[in-house]
Amino acid sequence: MISKTALLCALARAVHTHAKSEKIFEDEFAQDFVGLKEYRHARNLARQFLPAKKSKSKDYPAKDFIDQYLLPIILPRNRFAEDIVDAKQKTGDVQYVLLGAGLDSFALRNKSQNVDVFELDLYETQVFKIERTRQLFTKRRPKVHFVEIDFNKDSIISRLTNAGFNPKKRSVFSILGVSYYIPIEIFFKTIAEISKIAAPNSAIVFDYYEKERDSADSTTKISRLKQITASCGECMVDGYDPVQVDNLARKSGIQYCHDLSPKDIDEAFFSASTGLSAFEGVHLMYCGL
């Protein structure tokens, strides 16, 4: 069974791609890759999370929810990670490793022969993606390794190695949307494991949200997001302290870190014409190895 939050993320990418507003990130495969049935399911989910407003469009509640709670997180993080991959592939081969890939469609959109893609996720997700890839690409297969993994039980190193990962080749490791559900100490054990198999000049990209000063405040957007994900069967943890993130990153084999705050994200990705702004408390992290 595909996670509901993965479906909502795919829905948001599709909506933004087909919108008339300025594009921050485009995913022309989002809707077709998910499929009409699941796309409609995701749209119906989105309608549930905000009360209907007076509008001629029956999709207004869904759009309002997408604009407030999905696009401000999803667009900059996907653009950020793929910009890094694009920059590295211009100077030679690179492996792009997506941990918890969900319904990400980079492998379908990738046109560079310099990029070898590894997607790690649960068995159910991989079965779904393999079948959809076969349906969409009858004559050409995208350059991608679908790696089945249970992150609670399996070794990332052994799974990647068995799938053909080359530890001597530069890599970009994407861990987007994962830290929201994992305690900080466990998350950085994963970072430390990745550091052991990453070649020099590799990078790790992840996002996280700041631990709230007043966790009892149920009116913040983060608190509302927690309620929404819980209703999807996925419970978020309490967030991370930025100082602790930096300290643990350096203890995990990271050579240097660059933390983009919500203000930085706003300046880098959102202009006034987009009608969007960065999600409060959410950071993007670039770690050099």
Score class of each variant (00 low, 15 high):
residue 215 S to H: 04
residue 87 A to N: 09
residue 232 C to E: 03
residue 208 Y to K: 04
residue 96 Y to L: 14
residue 222 I to R: 09
residue 9 C to F: 05
residue 113 Q to A: 14
residue 11 L to V: 09
residue 201 N to S: 13
residue 115 V to A: 07
residue 276 L to E: 07
residue 159 R to D: 02
residue 256 Y to A: 13
residue 4 K to V: 01
residue 32 D to M: 10
residue 41 H to M: 06
residue 272 A to T: 12
residue 11 L to Y: 14
residue 107 A to R: 00
residue 99 L to Q: 01
residue 152 N to Q: 15
residue 125 T to A: 07
residue 223 S to C: 04
residue 185 E to Y: 04
residue 111 K to S: 11
residue 96 Y to S: 11
residue 266 D to C: 05
residue 263 K to I: 07
residue 45 L to H: 06
residue 275 G to Q: 10
residue 42 A to N: 08
residue 137 F to Q: 13
residue 166 N to A: 07
residue 144 V to T: 07
residue 255 Q to N: 14
residue 22 E to G: 00
residue 153 K to H: 12
residue 261 S to L: 10
residue 5 T to D: 03
residue 122 L to N: 02
residue 153 K to W: 00
residue 240 Y to V: 03
residue 64 D to A: 14
residue 163 A to D: 02
residue 49 F to E: 09
residue 108 L to N: 10
residue 160 L to F: 08
residue 86 D to V: 01
residue 129 K to I: 01
residue 153 K to D: 05
residue 164 G to F: 04
residue 95 Q to K: 05
residue 236 M to Q: 13
residue 21 S to V: 13
residue 71 L to W: 09
residue 237 V to H: 09
residue 52 A to T: 08
residue 12 A to S: 15
residue 83 D to K: 13
residue 50 L to W: 01
residue 228 I to M: 06
residue 69 Y to K: 07
residue 205 V to F: 02
residue 198 A to L: 13
residue 252 S to K: 08
residue 80 F to Y: 15
residue 252 S to A: 15
residue 214 D to H: 10
residue 41 H to E: 14
residue 283 H to N: 11
residue 223 S to T: 02
residue 41 H to L: 11
residue 130 I to H: 05
residue 54 K to I: 11
residue 22 E to C: 10
residue 14 A to L: 06
residue 289 L to C: 11
residue 118 F to S: 09
residue 10 A to G: 12
residue 66 I to M: 05
residue 166 N to K: 12
residue 230 A to L: 12
residue 241 D to T: 02
residue 223 S to A: 15
residue 192 A to E: 12
residue 231 S to K: 14
residue 137 F to L: 07
residue 265 I to R: 08
residue 132 R to Q: 15
residue 121 D to W: 02
residue 40 R to S: 02
residue 27 D to A: 12
residue 20 K to M: 08
residue 98 L to S: 13
residue 104 D to G: 11
residue 137 F to P: 00
residue 245 V to S: 05
residue 174 S to V: 03
residue 188 F to T: 03
residue 72 P to W: 02
residue 27 D to F: 05
residue 289 L to K: 14
residue 78 N to Y: 10
residue 126 Q to I: 10
residue 259 D to N: 14
residue 250 R to G: 03
residue 234 E to Q: 13
residue 285 M to S: 07
residue 40 R to A: 03
residue 239 G to A: 04
residue 43 R to Q: 07
residue 43 R to A: 11
residue 44 N to L: 12
residue 43 R to T: 04
residue 99 L to S: 02
residue 54 K to C: 01
residue 28 E to P: 00
residue 132 R to M: 11
residue 157 I to K: 15
residue 149 I to M: 13
residue 56 K to P: 01
residue 42 A to Q: 09
residue 89 Q to K: 15
residue 31 Q to V: 00
residue 48 Q to K: 15
residue 258 H to G: 00
residue 102 G to I: 05
residue 181 Y to G: 04
residue 187 F to L: 11
